[in-house]
Simulated assay, not measured.
Amino acid sequence: MKINDIQRTGAVQRYQQNMAVSSGAAAKGKQKDSIHISSEAKELLQGTRSPERAEKLEQLKEAVSSGTYQVDAGKVAEKMLGYFKNPYQNG
């Protein structure tokens, strides 16, 4: 039985060389994710916001950030129950 087999280090060195080459190629080919929202979509988004809805959203944001927002567990349970009874009719 050989305890000091020196030929096994060659495989490790080849593996390290392959990893260096593949990681260098991957770094060159990486692209950052990006998103583009069309002007039509932006107009639609602006058109759906009423002043009342904007005010309600602001109130909700303030309540959440201050920690005073309360969830009505009964309403959540009703919605969940309705979904589980008819999952395809509760869009």
Rank of each mutant, 00 (worst) to 15 (best):
N18K: 12
M19A: 06
M19Q: 11
M19T: 12
A20W: 00
A20D: 04
V21S: 06
V21R: 04
S22I: 11
S22F: 01
S23G: 02
S23V: 12
G24I: 00
G24R: 06
G24Y: 01
G24W: 03
A25S: 13
A26R: 10
A26H: 07
A26D: 09
A26P: 01
A26Q: 13
A26N: 10
A27S: 14
A27E: 15
K28M: 06
K28A: 09
K28D: 09
G29T: 07
K30D: 03
Q31C: 05
Q31L: 14
Q31N: 13
K32G: 06
K32S: 05
K32T: 08
D33C: 04
D33L: 10
D33F: 11
S34P: 05
S34D: 14
S34H: 11
I35G: 06
I35S: 14
H36G: 06
I37C: 01
S38L: 08
S39G: 00
S39A: 13
S39L: 12
E40Y: 10
K42E: 11
K42Q: 11
K42Y: 02
K42L: 02
E43L: 04
E43R: 10
E43H: 03
E43N: 06
L45G: 04
L45N: 09
L45E: 07
L45M: 11
Q46I: 00
Q46V: 02
G47V: 00
G47L: 03
G47C: 00
G47W: 00
G47K: 08
T48A: 08
T48G: 08
T48D: 06
T48L: 14
R49V: 07
R49K: 08
S50V: 04
S50P: 05
S50E: 09
P51M: 02
E52A: 12
E52R: 03
E52C: 04
A54W: 00
A54Y: 00
A54K: 04
E55G: 08
E55Q: 15
K56N: 09
L57M: 15
E58V: 02
E58I: 06
L60Y: 14
L60S: 10
L60R: 15
L60H: 09
L60E: 12
K61R: 13
E62I: 13
E62L: 14
A63D: 12
V64G: 02
V64L: 15
S66G: 02
S66Y: 07
T68V: 04
T68E: 13
T68L: 04
T68S: 15
Y69S: 09
Y69H: 11
Y69A: 01
Y69R: 13
D72K: 12
D72F: 15
A73K: 09
G74R: 08
G74D: 08
K75R: 14
V76L: 14
V76P: 01
V76Q: 11
A77R: 15
A77C: 02
A77W: 04
A77P: 06
E78F: 03
K79G: 07
K79H: 11
K79I: 14
M80L: 14
M80K: 10
M80H: 06
L81M: 10
G82W: 03
Y83T: 04
Y83V: 05
Y83W: 06
Y83K: 01
F84P: 00
F84C: 03
K85D: 03
N86S: 14
N86M: 12
Y88V: 00
Q89M: 07
N90A: 07
